[in-house]
Design a binder for these strands. Structure first.
Lengths: 182, 182
DNA sequence: CCTTGTACCTAGTAGGCACTCAGTAAGCCG
DNA sequence: CGGCTTACTGAGTGCCTACTAGGTACAAGG
């Protein structure tokens, strides 16, 4: 009984499928936020049915966590520097090449300000980690660390809204001149 | 036929009801974003049915526009200053007293980065207006204007995420010292 | 060849979504 | 009192939501 089972879809190994799912989801969250994200759209984007998608991530929240985990993993080992100024310069230059991911984080960062958003805590600890390491590189000046992060976040938003007019790297280098001039 | 018509709800004049709707909607958008906002929740928050709500705003998008219009109106005439530094100080001090509204704009600003978000254009022109007037006050230094706005936006996010630890006014005054030191 | 694991399916559930229609009653003007 | 406007209602439409139950077919290992 029931319709014949469809066999025209690709059957991928779990790791590969997961990677695809993360990629598609990132794009959609950047577009609609987590509350506006629909499992159906993610499934469609992967050429799957919704239950097929749920087989991999378990639930909508599991999907979100998969995305952030993946991102953190690839992030961790990529950036190292000894001077705060150099770290920022590298960070900004990398981000300038990945507008989609920057937008994903910008949207999620704002949305998750609400205390009961599923990744509210994730973003709090993420910020704390960033502040701590920046403060250390700034010789203990936490105020400067916070200003640097605020400036990067703010310029990124302006860049995302107007990529033609705003050159992220140049805008940051200008800002860094002022911030680090002393 | 049908249930007896309920007469236990307040019947408000349109202007008053509209004001209430805007207030409730602002709070909910700050919490869930526009894509996560539901007409049902807004109606509940006002003690109305959904069609009752639609009678006033027409559609979900009309609701959003009502919110932004209202805000702009009350904003326009409130702030005037001759030096950029003074304007920022006043702005930050007022915002520090309205975390809900600041969060509404933070969420909407990020969400509306997507080009087909219903208020994408609104936020682009809003930013342009801000940049232009800040640039003028900065003696034509647009880079500085952008940095000032970026810093304010960024610090506001940190403050909203951690209102206990971050004192917005103090954080801004520190930042202003550095930005305007020259 | 046969078994086991697993990637993915169809079908269905219970509820939520924005929005429409047609009607009702409250408030104001004469 | 009568008539008009309008704030608001209940009922309903068609579609979308996340998620579940149970089954199917492919692939690898014994």
């Amino acid at each position: 009984m029931g319709q014949p089972f469809r066999r025209d879809r690709a059957r991928l190994p779990a790791a590969e499928r997961r990677k695809q799912i993360v990629e598609v989801t990132s794009r959609l969250i950047a577009e609609y936020g987590f509350w506006g994200l629909s499992m159906q759209d993610v499934a469609d984007g992967c050429g799957l049915t919704v239950p097929g998608l749920l087989h991999h991530v378990g639930s909508k929240e599991g999907l979100l966590i998969a995305v952030l985990d993946e991102r953190d993993k690839s992030d961790m080992s990529e950036l190292k520097a000894e001077k705060l100024q150099d770290l920022c310069a590298a960070l900004v230059r990398r981000n300038a090449r990945q507008p989609e991911i920057v937008r994903l984080f910008a949207v999620l960062e704002a949305e998750s300000l609400a205390p009961d958003h599923p990744v509210h805590d994730y973003f709090r600890t993420r910020e704390k980690r960033a502040i701590d390491s920046f403060t250390e590189l700034a010789g203990g000046d936490e105020a400067l660390a916070r200003q640097v992060i605020a400036m990067m976040d703010g310029l990124q938003i302006q860049w995302l809204r107007n990529p033609v007019k705003v050159d992220l790297v140049k805008a940051w280098d200008d800002a860094a001149d002022r911030l680090f001039s002393k």
